[in-house]
Design a protein around this nucleic acid. Structure first.
Length: 588
DNA sequence: GCCGTTTTCGGCCCGACTGTTTTCAGTCG
């Protein structure tokens, strides 16, 4: 058994290797270590699993990890440290990772700060700033010292990633304002928001205009802006009052496609795409795809090929256009080259919502008001799934109350036109895996969702056993927000995903994507695994308030990031089709 | 140090902005 298997710390160590090589001017290694660090960060616990199963050989099969780095990871997992890293720390005892968090502070500056002022960490930096010693370093001045102080301030005023659900409307409001300007043809959101990432580090906007300067002037004066980092002819960057940055690029209309492609990212997707372009004799930048000529060993763009739309660019590279949501720099490029991209579920494909609440428990609106809002959002049915009695503090329903609710739903269904309510529940899974309501009561319902709201700290083995027992109950149709995480607030429960997927498949239980902004659960990677396993998905809002129906597009974004198609998602079916599915399940 | 529908050797993404310069280095996305 190893001593230290913390993938997060490992990612930081690899990052520090990258920076150290960069400081020393070593070519190519910085990027190799950077990629390895990102890879480990993204894989998380999977790195440890891979190492446990297949050792160094397994590690080498991971992206960005070859012989040398695999050996270092192996050493770290076995002994808890890496000799070469310890030596590096001895000769350069600097908290590289901590300092690098500061905007504008890169490897060369960290090197110089230590060489001239013996700055080892953020505290040393603060002292040096206070005593105005930094401006005395060669090639530094009062302005760059100020800039560094600002960067430090920004970091300390917590610049954590924000929830997509919170930022998306803000970005769209900014776009709407700029769009209305004279001379502006296009104005759109790019970056991680366009990719529908669950959290967002900054807002990337792109505009095309005959009068770029006017757009820039308007941008830095938007009401959401609190200060301006940079303002140029084609690019500006500002700080927003709600605590994150927004960038705007303004380009000529004729290169819109290239710019949109470029600033949609993600970074790794773009690096791979530019490498692919190079291998086919092109070079790609934000102004288009160019044929390449070599002058004195240097690549120079020569003739413009295409730039009007993203599709043109991908097509010239011999591939289909991957939807933004799956541009992560992994197998989407290969799939696009082989013309094997899936037809992702469209944003308007949902017909119903399988998880909603009402004033019967902790919702804020009556069943009827919720139904009317759902219908206004284009849905034709929804399941009413209030909580059960284990959640006593919100008056969860017992069997008797549930029957009473069913009678109300019967009455409402007679009254509603073009909309149907399904009788359902969000039934608690108790600690031992039994359900909070009697099977006889569950059998009366159209739709039984189950979920966990207690005992979230069970061991992986216990938690998995608990869930498997619940899913094996023949009354259960769906497992709601399976990992129980709350982004930025609560870690996911420990569970063996492979076993849970296998059980869901065996017992024909659907897995839910809960669209609430801080849940986003299942998450993208889990969705992809579920889709691969052929398990049905539902995309629900878990609406506790009429406004929550608007979050459905977040859940659809997650599903698309998980390569889900319309056929994979249960509530894209019409009500008769859904009923047929449920009847078939009951017969099994 | 990693990687392979031109390669197991010889490649390795690209441009804007800032600050301190006087033609460029550093950082970022």
């Amino acid at each position: 058994m190893g001593k230290n298997q913390n993938p997060e710390e490992l990612a930081k160590i690899l990052f520090e290797f990258s920076y150290r090589h960069e400081m020393l001017g070593v070519p190519f290694k910085p990027r190799a270590y950077q990629l390895a660090s990102e890879s480990v960060g993204a894989l998380g616990g999977e790195v440890v699993e891979t190492w446990r199963k297949d050792g160094i050989k397994g590690l080498k099969s991971l992206p960005g990890i070859g012989q040398s780095i695999a050996e270092k990871i192996d050493e770290y997992f076995r002994t808890g440290k890496i000799k070469e890293y310890a030596q590096m720390k001895k000769s350069f005892p600097v908290d590289i990772w901590g300092l690098s968090r500061i905007e504008g502070l890169g490897p060369k500056h960290i090197r110089d700060l230590y060489a001239h002022l013996k700055v080892k960490d953020v505290d040393d930096l603060k002292k040096a700033l206070k005593e105005q010693r930094i401006r005395k370093i060669p090639r530094w001045g009062a302005k760059s010292e100020d800039k560094l102080a600002r960067g430090l301030g920004l970091m300390e005023s917590s610049s954590e990633r924000k929830l997509l659900g919170e930022i998306l409307p803000v970005a769209e409001a900014m776009v709407e304002k700029l769009k209305r300007m004279k001379g502006v043809k296009h104005c759109v959101v790019a970056g991680s928001i366009r990719r529908m990432q669950e959290t967002v580090g900054d807002i990337d906007l792109i505009a095309t205009s005959d009068d770029p300067k006017a757009v820039m002037d308007a941008f830095v004066k938007l009401p959401q802006v609190s200060s301006v980092h940079e303002k140029g002819a084609t690019r500006s960057s500002v700080r927003l009052a709600l605590g994150l940055d927004a960038d705007l690029r303004v380009v000529p209309d004729k290169v819109f496609g290239a710019t949109l492609q470029y600033f949609t990212g993600d970074k790794r997707h773009n690096v791979l795409l530019r490498e692919l372009a190079l291998s086919k004799g092109f070079t790609l930048n934000e102004y288009g795809l160019f044929t390449l000529k070599r002058v004195k060993g240097k690549h120079l763009p020569s003739k413009l090929v295409v730039c009007k739309t993203e599709e043109e660019i991908y097509s010239k590279l011999g591939m289909d256009t991957p939807p933004p949501e799956i541009r992560v720099g992994a197998d989407e490029i290969e799939a696009a080259l082989k013309h094997r991209l899936p037809a992702l579920l469209p944003y308007d494909a949902l017909r119903g919502d399988m998880h909603t609440h009402s004033t019967w428990t902790d919702g804020t609106a009556s069943i009827e008001d919720m139904a009317k809002t759902a219908q206004a959002h284009g849905l034709t049915y929804q399941a009413v799934t209030d909580h059960t009695k284990a959640l006593a503090f919100i008056h969860g329903l017992d069997e008797k109350a549930l029957l009473k609710q069913c009678r109300e739903i019967d009455a409402l269904n007679k009254k509603l036109r073009g909309f149907t309510l399904l009788k359902g529940t969000e039934c608690d899974i108790l600690q031992d895996g039994t359900l909070d309501l009697a099977d006889s009561a569950l059998a009366e319902l159209d739709w039984v969702g189950v979920s966990i709201h207690s005992h979230m700290r069970l061991s992986r083995a216990e938690q998995t056993k608990r869930i498997l027992k619940a899913l094996a109950n023949p009354q259960v149709d769906c497992f709601f927000h399976p990992t129980c995480r709350l982004i930025g607030q609560r870690e996911p429960i420990e569970l063996d995903l492979d076993e849970v997927l296998a059980a869901a498949k065996k017992f024909r239980v659907a897995l839910e994507i809960d669209s609430l902004p801080d849940r986003s659960d299942l998450r993208d990677a889990h969705v992809r695994a579920a889709v691969r396993a052929g398990i049905a998905i539902t995309i629900d809002t878990d609406a506790h308030h009429p406004d929550h129906y608007a979050f459905a597009r977040l859940g659809i974004g997650v599903a698309r990031r998980g390569w889900a198609t319309k056929a994979d998602v249960l509530n894209t079916r019409s009500l008769p089709q859904l009923k047929k599915y449920l009847e078939k399940k009951k017969r099994k």
